[in-house]
Simulated assay, not measured.
Amino acid sequence: MTNMKKLLEANAGHGQRRVSQVFRDFCELAALAIRNSVDPHGQTEREERYLSIARGYTSEEASRFAEALAHLALQLEEGFSDALGHLYMSLDLGNESIGQFFTPYDVGLVIAKMNVGNILGQLAEKEFVTVQEPAVGSGGMIIALADALREEGVNYQQSMHVTARDLDITAVHMTYIQLTLINVAAVVVHGNTLTMEELDTWPTPAHVIGGWAERLQLRHAETTPQTVPGHAQRGMGAEDYCTCDGPWPCPQAAETADAA
């Protein structure tokens, strides 16, 4: 993580740019590059957005971004963690006006281990579980859940699908990058959990390549699920588990569905 921090701070250019902007640009560039490799819809617009950001950096600075992403991939390969959430906090970005803070990974892992028994029970009866994360932040709780399942000998890559939401676009990018690097099948929604407004959806490569849209549609057709607005048209049925409060239905989403 120290190497990533130094690389991003170097791209701040000794005060020429704010570190917060460099961090946001790093996350957006990485997320755009990943998504364009698997999602043809809107590809041209995303490529234009990528180039508009990249033009603000020199070739040396762009190389630092690539090196930082390589460090991130290596760190997550060596052991699961909320690397980007930790980096965000170490850069003191959580102290800015947005007031956004991320739960320490160790705390998230304890919570995940406390709830993993419920998921194991679900998996005894079905091929996979669906997980809802209504305020995903940097994705730390989902990473911790994958970590806990892996410790139990469960192949989370085949046994879990995640629908994650956040209103902050940088949080969406952070989650998308990290879930991609640990190969979690997920759709990361840029949207408001309370109003169920969806601004964009970011399918991870594992979701696309693994044929999860079809798997979810088949699950939806085989059951009579309780759905929340916006899920049915994407083939997403009722969630089996919610990171905010254990088993689905999630209290936050259920209140919204009742009011709709």
Rank of each mutant, 00 (worst) to 15 (best):
Y176L: 10
N192I: 02
T180H: 07
W202Y: 05
T201G: 05
Q178D: 05
T193P: 00
W212K: 12
V208A: 03
T201I: 14
A206E: 15
A171F: 11
Q178W: 07
L181N: 04
N183Y: 01
T193S: 04
V189K: 04
I177D: 01
L179M: 13
N183L: 09
D200A: 15
V172E: 11
N192C: 06
P203T: 07
N192M: 06
E197T: 12
L194R: 10
Q178A: 03
N183W: 01
M196N: 10
I209F: 04
L179D: 12
W202R: 01
V188Q: 07
W202E: 05
T180S: 15
V189W: 00
T193W: 06
L181W: 02
V188F: 05
H190R: 09
G210K: 13
L199S: 12
T204Y: 02
G211N: 09
H190L: 14
T180R: 03
I169A: 02
G210I: 10
V188M: 08
H207Q: 13
D200W: 07
V184I: 15
T175M: 00
A206M: 14
T180V: 03
Q178E: 13
N183K: 15
I182H: 06
T201C: 13
I209G: 03
T180C: 07
A185N: 06
N183P: 00
V187N: 12
E198N: 06
L199Y: 12
L179R: 10
D168I: 15
W212E: 14
V187P: 01
L179E: 13
L194H: 11
V184R: 08
G210Q: 15
L194Y: 12
P205N: 09
D168N: 15
P203Y: 10
V188C: 10
T170N: 15
V187S: 09
I182P: 04
G210D: 06
E197D: 15
N192H: 03
A185F: 04
D168L: 14
I209S: 12
V188K: 05
E198L: 03
V188R: 08
V208S: 04
W202K: 02
E198K: 03
D168E: 11
T175Y: 00
L194E: 12
G210N: 07
V172N: 11
I169R: 14
P205K: 10
